[in-house]
Amino acid sequence: MNKKVVPFIVIALGIGLFAILAASRGFAVTLGAFFTIGIFSFLYKDNPYYKFSEALFVGISAGYWFVSLFWQQMYSKLFSQVAEAYQHTFVNGGGWDDRWMMLVGGVLGVMMLMRLFPKIGWISRWPLAVIVGATAGLYFINYFVSNGINQIGATIAPLQQYGKDGSLDWWASISQFLLVVGTLSGLVYFYFSKEHKGAFGGVAKIGIWTLMLTFGASFGYTVMSRMSLLIGRMDYLVSTWLGLVK
């Protein structure tokens, strides 16, 4: 058989199989299964079926964000706000409206698109400066409060923990002690301006142990979440699509 004919036969067989399954199990669910198997096919090796699914995923993801941001940000914060400001100022004769200021955001947004044209790409630095400045200011406060003050406040708690009957809860007290020691020693480990030697090095060593327990727990948790996703996709193929498990 001519080797050039083989891909066409494979594609024709695939379309036929898809049509049969779509007719029996439903078009939408078979479409989902088609792309699920496409991505899973990478586990065998890189192949045209996977590349097709991957390329489509890239395009569809870009389209998804393009549409979502248009309606959620540009339409609701720019176009509809400016239209309402126009109504207020010119139709109702209400004078200045703060919503006109959204036009500045729109102009800065268009300036951002100038990056597509290399000769005038520098114009995009202005809107970029707004994003960088806002992120820096926002993160400065947010991280200071949530990651700094709140975490320190939660750590500085009484070491003696009492049960519901008012007696000393030994286990909870030991746990609280370990929590404080673990946090402080972890911070000591991250202090690199002093050599980790002597008593300081000993505390830093406890910090490493705490961090290893943290990384182990986080890694274990990540493994579990990925497995859960895998089970979800398998369930989709076996139960939702093929109906083998009910």
């Binding site: 959204m102 729109g106 947004g109």
Partner: peptide
């Protein structure tokens, strides 16, 4: 608000 609008344009970019 400008941040939201510019971010949307950045993703469009």
């Amino acid at each position: 608000d400008w941040f939201g609008i510019i971010t949307a344009f950045a993703i469009w970019l």
